[in-house]
């Protein structure tokens, strides 16, 4: 019985988002010449992997009732390390990628430790990291875009059945993320922490460890997104990812994850990312002016959350 209701809820969840997405696609298909083509969808699929991976990490953080404002800066810093390792130190790609992921993990562990050790609001700690990691990115690159070139190009070109490697990596991340949340004790403990931290503590959940793990996961995923970002642009840009934290939060919230914690799903976040990407691509193809684009994007974000309010009542 409970299973049945859960299934219904899940269906309603996905159906609502799929409906919004369907409406957008139809609208753009009717108002432009080439939107409804395979090329458009392949282009979007090649552009969202880093956003999807960032938003997956952000979903975990929001579920425990936290927030991570540093994802964009951590992306830039780990990308900068990747660029430096490849261009200046001439290291092989796997080593460079490991250094990059290590940098991300380190930032996340620092975030987590500060949050639990001094019981600080994650907003402030990660705001600090947003500044510090950006500064680190400028230092590491000497404020110059590092052109990596062919050494990484193949990552975004390699494809299986028309799906690029970054896209596959992003999908694996989403599916793994969802499975962890739904089926592992760790995943379920995160909902408990976000729902009621005190109750979770009393029931014996190691809150500190779980929090550090979540922030480390989020930053490591930012570093993974950096690998994809750098391979797509074949360059490490110290200004990369500025403002990504808000885009990631927007995508997660459109997907119905609560900013208050305790509720959320990675699959829904994926829908959120796709909705934002479709919107952006469609508006460009329509030839919309910049102010209009921003107005519409802002409107859709709020509308999606309003729809979510009603969805929650079913």
């Amino acid at each position: 019985m409970i299973q049945g209701r859960q299934l219904l809820r899940a269906l309603v969840n996905y159906a609502g988002l799929a409906l919004v997405l369907g409406l957008l696609v139809t609208l753009f298909a009717l108002s432009t010449d080439y939107f409804f083509t395979w090329t458009t969808f392949r282009t979007i699929a090649n552009q969202i992997p880093d956003a999807v991976i960032l938003a997956t990490g952000m979903t975990f953080v929001l579920i425990i009732g936290g927030i991570d404002l540093s994802v964009g800066s951590v992306l830039a810093l780990s990308g900068a390390v990747l660029g430096l390792a490849m261009v200046r130190w001439q290291l092989p790609l796997p080593v460079a990628v490991l250094l990059c992921l290590g940098t991300g993990a380190l930032c996340g562990v620092l975030n987590g430790l500060f949050v639990i050790r001094w019981q600080l609001p994650a907003f402030i700690v990660t705001l600090g990291m947003l500044e510090a990691a950006r500064g680190g990115a400028y230092l590491v690159t000497g404020s110059k875009t590092q052109y990596i070139g062919a050494g990484m190009d193949w990552i975004s070109r390699w494809s299986l059945l028309g799906l690029s490697l970054p896209f596959l990596v992003a999908m694996i991340t989403v599916i793994t993320g969802q499975l962890v949340l739904t089926y592992t004790p760790f995943g379920r403990s995160l909902y408990a922490i976000g729902g009621n931290e005190e109750a979770a503590r009393l029931s014996g959940i190691p809150i500190g460890k779980a929090k550090v793990a979540v922030y480390a996961l989020c930053s490591t995923l930012s570093a993974l997104a950096a690998v994809i970002y750098c391979s797509r642009l074949t360059a490490a840009d110290p200004n990369a990812g500025s403002g990504y934290e808000l885009q990631a939060i927007a995508a997660v919230v459109i997907g119905g994850t609560s900013l208050m914690g305790g509720r959320g799903s990675v699959i829904n976040t994926l829908f959120g990312v796709i909705i934002i990407a479709v919107l952006e691509s469609g508006l460009i193809q329509m030839g919309a002016q910049e102010p209009v684009k921003r107005l519409v994007t802002g409107g859709i974000i709020v509308a999606a959350v309003v729809i979510d309010y009603y969805r929650g009542k079913i």
Binding site: T32, D33, Y34, F35, T37, T39, T40, T43, N46, Q47, T145, Y229, R232, L233, A235, D237, N239, A240, G241, S242, E280, S281, I284, Q285, G287
Partner: peptide, 16 residues
Amino acid sequence: EMDKAHRVVSALITEH
């Protein structure tokens, strides 16, 4: 920005 231009150009070559 590099990334913004990447997205804009990708969409433009599809539409035109």
